[in-house]
Amino acid sequence: STVKVRLGHLEVTLHNVSEEDVRELRELWKNGADEEDLRRWLEEWKK
C-alpha cells in the first residue's frame, strides 16, 4: 500500500510499504532521528 508519512516538516510517500516499515520509521523519528538518519533509512529501504 502507499502511505504518506509526516515527520516534522518532512513528508514522505512510501509505495509498497508494510505497516511494520512505517512503524519502524516512526520509531526512529520518535527516538530523535534527524532527517539524515531518515534519508539513510529510506535509501536502505528502497534497495
Rank of each mutant, 00 (worst) to 15 (best):
S1H: 15
S1L: 15
S1E: 09
S1I: 15
S1A: 14
S1K: 12
S1N: 14
T2L: 09
T2N: 05
T2S: 09
T2V: 10
T2I: 10
T2G: 03
T2H: 07
V3H: 03
V3C: 07
V3R: 03
V3T: 04
V3E: 02
K4T: 15
K4V: 15
K4H: 11
K4L: 07
K4C: 14
V5S: 00
V5T: 01
V5D: 00
V5L: 15
V5N: 00
V5I: 15
V5G: 01
V5Q: 01
V5A: 01
V5K: 00
R6Y: 11
R6N: 07
R6W: 14
L7D: 01
L7A: 04
L7T: 02
L7S: 02
L7N: 02
L7W: 09
L7K: 03
L7R: 02
L7C: 06
L7E: 01
G8K: 04
G8C: 03
G8H: 04
G8T: 03
H9G: 13
H9Y: 11
H9M: 13
H9W: 10
H9L: 12
H9A: 14
L10V: 13
L10A: 07
L10D: 10
L10K: 08
L10R: 07
L10P: 00
E11Q: 09
E11G: 03
E11Y: 11
E11A: 06
E11S: 12
V12Y: 15
V12C: 08
V12F: 15
V12I: 14
T13L: 08
T13N: 03
L14S: 00
L14C: 04
L14R: 00
L14I: 11
L14T: 00
L14G: 00
H15N: 07
H15T: 10
H15W: 09
H15I: 08
H15D: 06
N16Y: 07
N16R: 05
N16I: 02
N16C: 05
N16P: 02
N16T: 02
V17R: 01
V17D: 00
V17A: 08
V17E: 00
V17S: 02
S18G: 06
S18H: 06
S18F: 04
S18K: 10
S18Q: 07
E19D: 13
E19M: 10
E19S: 09
E19K: 08
E19G: 05
E19R: 07
E19Y: 07
E19H: 08
E20K: 14
E20V: 09
E20A: 12
E20T: 10
E20M: 09
D21E: 09
D21R: 07
D21G: 10
D21T: 08
V22A: 10
V22C: 07
V22D: 02
V22T: 04
V22Q: 09
V22M: 15
V22K: 06
V22S: 04
R23C: 09
R23M: 12
R23F: 11
R23V: 08
E24W: 11
E24A: 15
E24S: 14
E24Q: 15
E24N: 12
E24H: 11
E24Y: 13
E24K: 15
E24T: 15
E24P: 02
L25S: 00
L25E: 00
L25A: 01
L25M: 04
L25G: 00
R26P: 00
R26I: 13
R26D: 06
R26Y: 15
R26G: 06
R26S: 10
R26T: 11
E27K: 11
E27H: 06
E27R: 13
E27Y: 07
E27M: 10
E27V: 05
E27Q: 09
E27A: 09
E27T: 07
L28Y: 05
L28N: 01
L28H: 02
L28C: 04
L28Q: 03
L28E: 01
L28P: 00
L28S: 01
W29E: 07
W29K: 05
W29R: 04
K30I: 10
K30W: 05
K30R: 14
K30S: 12
K30Q: 10
K30A: 14
K30C: 05
K30N: 12
K30G: 06
K30T: 10
N31E: 05
N31Q: 12
N31A: 10
N31S: 13
N31D: 05
G32H: 06
G32W: 03
G32M: 06
G32P: 02
G32N: 09
A33T: 04
A33H: 04
A33D: 03
A33W: 06
A33C: 06
A33S: 06
A33K: 03
A33N: 04
D34A: 11
D34E: 10
D34L: 10
E35P: 07
E35T: 08
E35A: 08
E35I: 12
E35K: 05
E35S: 08
E35G: 04
E36W: 07
E36H: 14
E36D: 13
E36A: 12
E36N: 13
E36Y: 09
E36I: 10
D37M: 15
D37S: 14
D37N: 08
D37A: 15
D37G: 09
D37I: 14
D37Q: 15
D37W: 06
D37V: 15
L38R: 01
L38G: 00
L38N: 00
L38H: 01
L38T: 02
L38F: 11
L38P: 01
L38Y: 04
L38Q: 01
R39V: 10
R39C: 04
R39N: 06
R39Q: 08
R39Y: 11
R39M: 13
R39H: 06
R40W: 05
R40L: 11
R40Q: 11
R40M: 09
W41N: 00
W41Y: 02
W41A: 02
W41T: 01
W41Q: 01
W41D: 00
L42Q: 01
L42G: 00
L42N: 00
L42K: 01
L42H: 02
L42M: 09
E43H: 12
E43A: 12
E43W: 10
E43F: 11
E43G: 04
E44T: 11
E44K: 15
E44Y: 12
E44Q: 14
E44G: 10
E44I: 11
W45T: 03
W45A: 04
W45E: 01
W45K: 09
W45I: 05
W45P: 01
W45G: 02
W45Q: 05
W45C: 03
W45D: 01
K46F: 14
K46I: 14
K46V: 13
K46N: 10
K46Q: 12
K46A: 12
K46P: 03
K46G: 09
K47I: 08
K47H: 08
K47E: 06
K47W: 07
K47A: 12
K47Q: 10
K47V: 08
K47P: 05
